[in-house]
């Protein structure tokens, strides 16, 4: 009786209805190839992956890792307002001097004129400052980090962001 119970228990452990392996890992950010280096302004939106911050005069910029920059009007620090999102794929950092915003965009450094925050204009692109984002796996992570296996049919990978994965098949290794 005890044996039957034990066998049933082990059986159920492996064959229960909720057999999904969930783990924190990384997923690619896919973008159509022709869009990857397009810099443009979009309406304010939610933050997906909190990035770094930068302050210039009455603006606070909050990075959304590998996607772009949220622009916040901070004229009144008691009532900051998100006013725009600047699409800059593959982005990690920014700095501002005068009315020029410098940012990394994939493997390039870009200079964007932000005199009119609702009409940012790309004024210069310096190519090849960085390596292109890895199209196969997320770099600089501990071994055995799970990631969603890349699918080239979904577009160009502009970067990798943290995500909860279900039954991931890929993980980093030696």
């Amino acid at each position: 009786m005890k044996k039957i119970f034990l066998i049933s228990f082990v059986f159920l452990l492996f064959f229960n209805g909720n057999n999904v392996f969930k783990v924190d890992g990384y997923r690619p950010v896919y973008v159509p190839k022709e869009e990857a280096k397009v810099i443009k302004v979009l309406p304010p939106r939610d933050v997906i992956t909190q990035g770094k911050i930068y302050v210039k005069d009455n603006y606070i910029f909050v990075g959304d890792v590998n996607q772009g920059i949220h622009v916040i009007d901070n004229s009144d620090p008691r009532h900051p307002q998100k006013i725009a999102f600047i699409q800059i794929y593959g982005n990690h950092d920014i700095a501002v001097k005068g009315n020029t915003l410098y940012a990394d965009n994939m493997d390039d450094l870009v200079a964007i004129d932000i005199s009119d925050m609702q009409n940012p204009a790309l004024v210069k692109r310096v190519e090849g400052v960085y390596k292109m984002p890895n199209q196969h796996f997320p770099e600089d992570l501990p071994f055995q980090t799970y990631f969603e296996c890349p699918d080239p049919s979904k577009g160009l990978i502009v970067g990798w962001i943290p995500a909860e994965l279900e039954n991931p098949k890929c993980y980093t290794s030696y």
């Binding site: 770094k52 302050v55 210039k56 920014i94 700095a95 501002v96 001097k97």
Partner: peptide
């Protein structure tokens, strides 16, 4: 800023850029 062409903003300590 003491800079020509406008003042510089401020970044956090995690930055990979500085002016």
């Amino acid at each position: 800023g003491g800079n020509i062409g406008g003042t510089t903003g401020k970044g956090g300590s995690m930055a990979k850029f500085t002016i």
